[in-house]
């Protein structure tokens, strides 16, 4: 099984005036060709920064401090900016959270699509336009030829996200990073987009990193799941295994918070407390202040351990399968 992406020990820190924010702190995972990885966590857990680190768009005061991002064997952290630019939108594409904000409001759809084609392929404008039209058709936009000359504000949110997806698919990339692309959409549209992306990824052999805070999205879409908390991956494994019997108390808490999984009338479980500030985070397990299994031993950094075949978690007191 060939790996599209392998992230090893990635640390992305933000050097603010108030101190260092360790947004991503020692994150490792890999994505095989054609597979879907769900990157799950609350807001501020570092999942989006991980995505931006991979595509090389971490803006100052943030920067990748250490670690490797191997994309088809090449370390992206060492790549010159110009070579990185040639990969972006071409071999690695990204879809953003808010479709209302991702398209430039003053440029027509065709301009924004054609420029993407021309940035990476030596083709004529007509050819580029034809590719743009085909891509729009592929993501299910009716009468794509006419819609090409429209402005973004003439589209609904769902349609705009389809345009963004079409742009991401223009060069049939090896990897798409989708940063909560359905959170801003209606539930019905969400479902359509999910199905569409799943189909397209399968057809083109594209690997997918799906960043979300919504476990129910991951359940139906991903092959593997990595749960992030306070800049670290706390649990990693096959999606069904993790959801059925989480090892890390935080994962268990997340699953418990999903309303649909609880019986009607039963009290919704919740994780007490708040996500800690990443600024000057003390050492040790970041979850221990909210964890009912915490002990003094948790004040030392728990290492990532393989607790079952293909199952990793960063916890000293992991849940036993029966407890979940």
């Amino acid at each position: 099984m060939s790996l599209t992406l392998e992230v090893r020990g990635l640390r992305t820190h933000f050097f603010t005036r108030a101190g260092v924010v360790k947004a991503v702190d020692d994150v490792s995972f890999s994505v095989a060709r054609g597979r879907v990885l769900g990157l799950v966590g609350e807001s501020g857990s570092g999942k989006s920064v991980t995505g931006f680190s991979i595509i090389g768009l971490v803006d100052p005061p943030g920067r990748i401090v250490s670690g490797e991002i191997l994309f088809r064997g090449r370390d992206l952290t060492r790549l010159p900016e110009e070579e990185m630019r040639q990969l972006r939108g071409n071999r690695i594409a990204m879809i953003f959270q808010d479709p209302m904000m991702t398209l430039n409001p003053v440029l027509r759809i065709d301009t924004q699509m054609i420029e993407t084609v021309l940035a990476h392929a030596k083709v004529s404008r007509e050819e580029a336009r034809a590719r743009a039209r085909d891509a729009l058709g592929m993501v299910g936009i009716p009468s794509p030829e006419e819609r090409l000359s429209a402005y973004p504000h003439q589209f609904s949110g769902g349609m705009r996200q389809r345009v963004a997806i079409a742009i991401a698919l223009l060069h049939r990339p090896d990897l798409i990073i989708a940063d909560e692309p359905t959170t801003a959409l209606d539930v019905t549209i969400q479902g359509q987009i999910l199905a569409e992306v799943q189909k397209l990824a399968a057809e083109t052999g594209t690997s997918l990193i799906w960043i979300t805070h919504d476990l129910s999205v991951v359940a139906g879409l991903a092959d593997e799941i990595a749960v992030m908390y306070a800049g670290k991956v706390v649990e990693h494994g096959e999606v069904s295994a993790v959801l059925d019997s989480p090892l890390h108390p935080y994962t268990a808490g997340l699953i418990g918070s999903v309303p649909s999984r609880n019986a009607r009338g039963a009290r919704l479980k919740q994780i007490p407390g708040m996500t800690p500030s990443l600024l000057n985070l003390p050492p040790g397990c970041a979850f221990r202040s909210r964890c009912d299994r915490a002990s003094p031993a948790c004040e030392a950094d728990p290492p990532m351990r393989e607790l079952a075949p293909g199952r990793n978690a960063r916890c000293i007191h992991p849940l036993l399968p029966a407890e979940a």
Binding site: F14, T16, V21, A23, G44, S277, L278, L279
Partner: peptide
């Protein structure tokens, strides 16, 4: 990204 500072 939460960058709240602890109050002095």
């Amino acid at each position: 990204m939460s960058t709240t500072t602890a109050p002095p």
